[in-house]
């Protein structure tokens, strides 16, 4: 019987995540056990979670693709924060898994209790608590979309007990993009191939639009025009165009 952790790991596998940097701990047991059993994503054990976040950020910056790090509840995920600030300000796509104390104890000044939703707010585009199995995979997919489309950090907060609960039904998926690993992430955000290509085309024409407009007036207009981007757009901008792209 698949549990919530299995479902989370399954989504990360589908997004072509190959490794997770982190430090194990009680509240992360569901996730790390699922990774061990499924055997697709490698666990990279570090000695301090800050190193996990910096390492994930370096990987994301070099590859232009999503990278993931994880910390256990309380002090564990708190140690991620400085590295995540660096990832977020560098605008590289990183998802952090912040395990949380048992869901029934939240709000009771429990051992190791913190509130990651507040703590990670300033270093992420998105930070959300999973409190019910039926929020998965949506919260995980949304976190990936936020990290990839906005280029920055997204944080999934999950209590250890929720990760071990029985998962909801599996949502059918489209098969993986053949040529372009990074685009899997965006395609997921757009749901289907036609929507995906529309997003790509709009994004490209928006980027090409030259609008010499007065500084201040341009701001709301620009915000509205921001469309989802694929990591390849970022990669093309940061690696001298050496990254192959689907559209040349």
């Amino acid at each position: 019987m698949a549990n919530v952790a299995d479902r989370i790991v399954e989504v990360l596998e589908a997004a072509n995540v190959q490794r997770i940097y982190g430090l194990v701990g009680d509240s992360l047991n569901g996730i790390t056990e699922s990774m061990r059993v499924r055997g697709k994503i490698e666990w990279i054990a570090v000695r301090h979670e800050e190193v996990a976040a910096f390492a994930a950020g370096a990987q994301a910056q070099l590859t232009g693709e999503l990278a993931v790090c994880a910390g256990s509840c309380g002090p564990g995920n708190l140690h991620l924060i400085n590295g995540l600030f660096d990832c977020h300000r560098n605008r590289v796509p990183v998802v952090a898994i912040a395990a949380q104390i048992p869901s029934t104890e939240i709000g009771s000044s429990y051992f190791q209790e913190t509130h990651p939703q507040s703590l990670f707010k300033d270093c992420s585009h998105y930070v959300e608590l999973i409190s019910d199995p039926l929020q998965v995979p949506r919260i995980v997919e949304t976190a990936i979309r936020e990290a990839v489309a906005k280029q920055g950090v997204a944080v999934i907060v999950i209590p250890g007990d929720v990760a071990l609960k029985e998962a909801g039904p599996r949502v059918p998926r489209v098969s993986r993009c053949r040529d372009c690993r990074a685009c899997v992430q965006l395609r997921r955000t757009s749901g289907s191939w036609p929507t995906f290509w529309t997003a790509v085309k709009e994004r490209r024409s928006s980027a090409a639009r030259v609008a010499p407009v007065p500084t201040m007036r341009s701001l709301p207009w620009q915000r509205n025009s921001r469309l989802p981007s694929c990591t390849h757009f970022a990669a093309r901008n940061t690696s001298n165009g050496t990254t192959p792209t689907m559209w040349g």
Partner: peptide
């Protein structure tokens, strides 16, 4: 203290 941790991630990625 960013350099060595970033080097760790860089070496795993490449």
């Amino acid at each position: 203290a960013n350099a060595m941790p970033q080097a760790i991630g860089a070496q795993f990625a490449m």
